[in-house]
Amino acid sequence: MGTRVLVVDDAATVRLFYRGVLTAIGCKVDEAWNGAEGLEKALRDPPDLMLVDVNMPHLDGYGFLRAVRQEPELQAIPAVMISTESTAADAAQAYAVGANMYLHKPVRPERLSGLVRVLLGMPPA
């Protein structure tokens, strides 16, 4: 299990759901409950992929990705923003701060695992 995914979401149930989907396809999962903790963890041990919520305390997902994209060792890591916010403006803002993809919650497990496989170059299920 060499592929590492950092899940940054303030909801424990969402992190648990993502962990279940990701470990089932062979990923190692690290979790952060807000953008500040996520940034600290990403800088200490850069992941292969990041799944990021928008609305979080201390540092939201937009601020997190803005900070990540300013760090040379983190710039190329794919980031998927996953949020309940569903307007075109929300998606546009996510892409403007560096998201590679924007998904709306709730995300079906097969959609999430398929997307992660593609982004990480893993073979299809």
Rank of each mutant, 00 (worst) to 15 (best):
residue 1 M to R: 14
residue 3 T to K: 01
residue 3 T to P: 00
residue 6 L to P: 06
residue 7 V to M: 09
residue 9 D to L: 07
residue 11 A to C: 08
residue 12 A to H: 12
residue 15 R to G: 05
residue 15 R to H: 00
residue 16 L to P: 13
residue 16 L to R: 15
residue 22 L to F: 05
residue 25 I to G: 00
residue 26 G to I: 05
residue 27 C to D: 04
residue 29 V to R: 01
residue 30 D to R: 14
residue 30 D to Y: 07
residue 31 E to F: 01
residue 31 E to C: 03
residue 31 E to N: 06
residue 32 A to C: 11
residue 33 W to S: 14
residue 34 N to T: 02
residue 37 E to T: 14
residue 38 G to C: 07
residue 39 L to M: 11
residue 40 E to H: 15
residue 42 A to K: 09
residue 42 A to M: 15
residue 42 A to I: 15
residue 46 P to V: 00
residue 47 P to A: 05
residue 47 P to H: 12
residue 48 D to A: 14
residue 49 L to D: 00
residue 49 L to V: 03
residue 50 M to Y: 08
residue 51 L to D: 07
residue 53 D to Y: 13
residue 54 V to M: 09
residue 55 N to L: 14
residue 55 N to H: 14
residue 55 N to W: 12
residue 58 H to F: 12
residue 58 H to N: 11
residue 62 Y to H: 03
residue 62 Y to K: 04
residue 63 G to W: 06
residue 66 R to I: 02
residue 67 A to P: 06
residue 67 A to Y: 03
residue 67 A to W: 07
residue 70 Q to H: 09
residue 73 E to G: 04
residue 74 L to T: 04
residue 76 A to I: 01
residue 77 I to M: 10
residue 77 I to A: 08
residue 77 I to G: 04
residue 78 P to C: 02
residue 79 A to H: 04
residue 79 A to D: 08
residue 81 M to H: 09
residue 84 T to H: 15
residue 86 S to G: 13
residue 87 T to E: 01
residue 89 A to C: 09
residue 90 D to V: 04
residue 93 Q to P: 13
residue 94 A to I: 11
residue 95 Y to R: 09
residue 95 Y to K: 08
residue 96 A to M: 10
residue 97 V to C: 02
residue 98 G to D: 04
residue 100 N to C: 14
residue 101 M to D: 05
residue 101 M to Y: 10
residue 101 M to P: 09
residue 103 L to D: 13
residue 103 L to H: 13
residue 104 H to T: 13
residue 104 H to F: 13
residue 107 V to S: 15
residue 108 R to V: 08
residue 108 R to E: 15
residue 108 R to L: 14
residue 111 R to K: 11
residue 114 G to T: 11
residue 114 G to L: 07
residue 114 G to H: 04
residue 114 G to A: 00
residue 116 V to P: 02
residue 117 R to G: 05
residue 117 R to W: 05
residue 117 R to S: 02
residue 118 V to R: 12
residue 119 L to P: 00
residue 119 L to H: 01
residue 119 L to I: 10
residue 120 L to C: 06
residue 122 M to G: 05
residue 124 P to Q: 08
